[in-house]
């Protein structure tokens, strides 16, 4: 069985014709969803920690809802609902980018919430006592420390996010996995293509994980 595998179709031409475009989109989706998710997630975390029910409650509801629905359903529903709302499709790629940003924000928000809570209350007092406003205290004192404390966890979440981008197959967006799938069909070697896809995802994620582990020991704030 294993002997029947034929990997000879895997060459540079295949990479440039089928995989590069998909790989580029997967990376783009990961980076945008990470940046957007962290910004939106931090805002959600600040709302939840604000002590004001009219901010905390909607934010908590949003986070808990997103965390209770499978990602693939959110991807599908957003893709299917948007044409009904705005009258036309926005395209699978754009739809995926928005969905991932909104979905990942819920997860990043929980990480940032833990990060903000990991910064001692006294730091907030010290900021206030110097005359800093709430916004300045958060931006200059609390969030940099929270971000730094949580950087390894944020990056780990990003690696998971990269793996999850393969779920855009549900709406037919052209990502890395799709590239392999199309190549497999073209060369009539679907099993080999999926096998290679797994290896590529594994190599990328495993090396990123090792980098995060190294980073973890290096960036800890000296206390």
């Amino acid at each position: 069985m294993i002997g029947n595998l034929d990997l000879s179709f895997f060459n540079w031409e295949l990479v440039s014709n089928f995989l590069a475009k998909g790989f580029y989109f997967s990376i783009q989706l990961t980076l945008i969803a990470m940046a957007g998710g962290i910004v939106f997630g931090t805002a959600l975390a600040l709302c939840r920690l604000s002590g004001r029910p009219w901010l905390a409650l909607p934010a908590a509801t949003y986070v808990n809802t997103m965390r209770s629905i499978p990602l693939v359903m959110v991807i599908l529903w957003f893709f299917l609902l948007i044409p009904l709302l705005i009258g036309r499709s926005m395209g699978a790629e754009l739809s995926a980018i928005i969905t991932f940003t909104l979905f990942e924000a819920a997860y990043y928000s929980e990480i940032m919430r833990a990060g903000i809570q990991s910064v001692a209350r006294g730091q907030v007092y010290a900021g206030y006592a110097l005359g800093l406003t709430y916004g300045q205290t958060m931006r200059l004192i609390v969030l940099p420390q929270a971000f730094r404390n949580m950087l390894p966890v944020l990056l780990t979440q990003t690696i998971i996010l990269f793996q999850d981008t393969s779920l855009v197959y549900a709406i037919g967006a052209y990502d890395l996995l799709k590239g392999f799938e199309v190549a497999g069909k073209n060369f009539n070697r679907p099993v080999e293509a999926y096998l290679l896809a797994a290896v590529v995802y594994f190599v990328i994620c495993f090396s990123l994980s090792s980098v995060v582990k190294k980073l973890q020991t290096r960036i800890a704030i000296i206390r």
Partner: peptide, 16 residues
């Protein structure tokens, strides 16, 4: 508050 200096038990310097 900017006109009132305060010193805390646990210093509260900004570690970053």
């Amino acid at each position: 508050r900017s006109k009132v200096g305060m010193v805390f038990q646990h210093f509260e310097l900004f570690p970053h």
